[in-house]
Design a protein around this nucleic acid. Sequence first.
DNA 1: TTGTATGCGTTATCAG
DNA 2: CTGATAACGCATACAA
Lengths: 329, 329
Amino acid sequence: MTKAHNGPTMADVAREAGVALGTVSRVINGEQVGEAYKTKVEEAIQKLGYRYNVSGRALRTDRTNTIAVIIPNTINPYFAALVHHLNVALEKRDKKMMLCFTEYDRGREIEFIHMAQQNRVDGIIALTYNPKLTIPEDIPFVTIDRFFSSSVPCIAADNFGGGMIAARKLKELGCTSALFMRIGSTLVNEPSKRKDGFVSGCVEVGLPFETMILEDGQPLDAFDRFLESRMKDGKLPFDGLFMGTDYQAWHIIKTLRRLGIRVPEDVQVIGFDGIRMFGDQELIVSTIVQPVQEIAETCVSTVLSKHLSNVPSLICLPVRYAAGGTTKE
Amino acid sequence: MTKAHNGPTMADVAREAGVALGTVSRVINGEQVGEAYKTKVEEAIQKLGYRYNVSGRALRTDRTNTIAVIIPNTINPYFAALVHHLNVALEKRDKKMMLCFTEYDRGREIEFIHMAQQNRVDGIIALTYNPKLTIPEDIPFVTIDRFFSSSVPCIAADNFGGGMIAARKLKELGCTSALFMRIGSTLVNEPSKRKDGFVSGCVEVGLPFETMILEDGQPLDAFDRFLESRMKDGKLPFDGLFMGTDYQAWHIIKTLRRLGIRVPEDVQVIGFDGIRMFGDQELIVSTIVQPVQEIAETCVSTVLSKHLSNVPSLICLPVRYAAGGTTKE
DNA sequence: TTGTATGCGTTATCAG
DNA sequence: CTGATAACGCATACAA
């Protein structure tokens, strides 16, 4: 076989510096080395433009300095933000990120976990939906938004708390009758608690409410038909609406306007996620903002923590309400 | 050293199957092997759940089956879409993607190219801004939106053509006086041609026009002040506006509305990129749509093509106009 | 402290 | 067609 690449190797550096191979390795890895040797080696490295071979080191140490991130895609702005902050957090620690897009495909979720193992990654951060996913035992694993078992740390926003905040806010803003709607995986995951929190909050503040949950896979316009069916004399029997996500809120607002309902004058709408225009500009709707950066940071520090077993099995990070023009502020 | 990982190796498979190590390798790589041997090996692989070690193979072959993608971030929806389609195109060819986010940092652009070389990637796809970037000779390199030299293929949308289309469209929609504004890197790259095409198109159709180019780094509200300065009796001397990007168009529309100018009744606005809400919903403004998927596909097929030298040095892909509510259709 | 030698898992060469 | 073995680049245990 002809060598494709002909960059300098440690042996080249050693020869150039007139020292032993092991000495070069020690310099590279910041171990104790005599000053004279060290400078000789460093000069040789400079001169040859040496950079260590990642595969060689990985083969030898069985560590890749890489964390696999398994996520549906990067098109959805919430995922895009997550990926962004995960990357920042990983880079800060000199880790590389191996990105795997599942496109919500459950087969792929499994396949990527295999691939991550095959690549000997140092850990996996996953946001998945497959109910039958089995988590590898031999590799640090952290999940987002979905609880597997007490041995697999789950990082999520405080979805329940977010639901409560939404209820209180609608009440505070003068709503007298509320509706919660969502569509999402039938899987019971952390976001499911948005409803529970909302219900709890409505009871707390004495706000009458209804809920409507659509099954996964149904088209969003089932919401539309529901609203249409509840219209009477050009009015809806609700003046407050809490939606499962910003995306769903955005969709329903278009429907409301089409039905001649004004937002926020007739109906106030709160979403969930904190999606912004162009990723970092204005909010799209009034919303419960997920602490994306903190979630990412926590995922990384958790998956890299030496003693995964000592880590809490569910970490909920605080959310906050933010006005985005679809409520009366 | 204690082995961290204890997955089965080729030697284990060979032992299990009662064949030689080399035979296992040949089966894995789909080379000619006797039928009986082949099945024995495949059974052993199944039984042990063997998967080849990526580092071992990479070390031996000096090929990683990985393409580095160097891009500012994934927050910007256009980049997010690009990354998405690049990933699809790469996965289709069983290549892995090594994502590098530069955050527009020129030092990082250089650093990532080094890192990619160090990781022995099979190719690099880069969207960069550093004027002093030197392209490695020994590794297939493709750039997006920016021409380096005839030996480095550049893939871009037909920015010039897009500018022309915008001019023709504004004329067709009844505009009598147009303005082009943009802010962007002082670097002369492909997107710079949006203006040239627009100017050319205006001349062609006989549409009077002005242009205003902001230097990179200036705040966007310099646009606002410019518009304010041109206001007379609550009116602007333009009724057609072509902006360098959808983001800038979006910004300027807010300004216009603040100034009491109606869009599209008083002024029609066209952007560039084709950004959609939530990545795949409605357009944000009327716009010239970049063929993101084709760009991604072309980048991948080009960087993987055996004979990079035979490839054209600039590939422009066709754009199209799409109405997005900020023009009179 | 530094040098030497071994092996990580794989592919490729060479001999059978 | 198959088996044995060397080498890829590196880190490390051991010897000096």
